[in-house]
Design a protein around this nucleic acid. Structure first.
Length: 221
DNA sequence: GCGACAG
DNA sequence: ATCTTGTCGC
């Protein structure tokens, strides 16, 4: 598959994206987060990708379930094409969950993407579930940087409002929040803000990150 | 052409 | 993302 074919797939995903709330915030009971870690490949084996998913009770943020998947990496990291590298393991890990969440937080872009189809959007459309993208760095788009903790500012790209910068914690660089699928930009921001518990990253993402690294330390298993 | 560039 | 100890700042 050449670059053009992959772009075509992303535009197809973007055309199927729904930016409306599939569930009102006050009806949410379970939220989940997924994050990746990598295992260095041996001399003859390629690297492996670990996707760890954690389901939390909302809004208590109490962990209720988790799962993970490990696959061999078959695609390089290319800005804008991250989905072809990480989506497979995320989908596999999510599918093996016992309890399905109302919304899934994915590390990376949502519609704040060159072709409006970041990892969170791609995963959301593929699994047909609400997703939110939470990134630590911006890929594209522009917006003012919020200065006060709790403040957020809109990020625009090609004339469209694609997400927000959120000053989630004082002393920390703002994180980027964007809708992935089946959720509005406003609700994405409100939901992420309501999942912050004293750290830079919202609990679903933070806990998933910890789990992914734990699995990695234990050599994957 | 040059620089930027999720994880 | 990953390789890595100490260290500066709130």
């Amino acid at each position: 598959m050449d670059r053009g074919e992959l772009y075509r797939i992303q535009r197809e995903i973007a055309s199927r994206t729904i930016l409306e709330d599939w569930i009102s915030l006050d009806q949410i009971e379970l939220v989940a987060g997924v994050d990746q870690a990598f295992l260095r490949g041996g001399d003859d084996e390629g690297e492996m990708i670990i996707s760890a998913v954690v389901v939390l009770e909302y809004p208590s943020m109490k962990p209720l379930d988790s799962s993970y998947a490990i696959l061999s990496v078959d695609f390089p990291y290319i800005p804008g094409l991250l989905t072809f590298r990480e989506a497979p393991s995320i989908i596999k890990a999510f599918s093996s969950l016992d309890r399905k969440p109302d919304v899934l937080f994915v590390d990376g872009c949502g519609i704040n993407h060159p072709r409006f189809a970041g990892l969170a959007t791609h995963v959301g459309v593929t699994l047909d579930i609400p997703t939110v993208g939470v990134a630590k760095n911006i890929l594209c788009g522009e917006g003012d940087l919020p200065v006060k903790e709790g403040d957020a500012s809109i990020i625009t790209y090609r004339g469209r409002e694609v997400g927000y910068y959120l000053k989630s914690k004082k002393g920390c660089k703002p994180i980027i929040v964007a809708p992935g699928h089946k959720i509005s930009p406003e609700s994405s921001l409100k939901l992420v803000k309501s999942c912050i518990r004293g750290y830079k990253l919202p609990e679903p993402t933070r806990i998933a990150h910890l789990l992914a690294n734990k699995i990695k330390r234990d050599g994957g298993s």
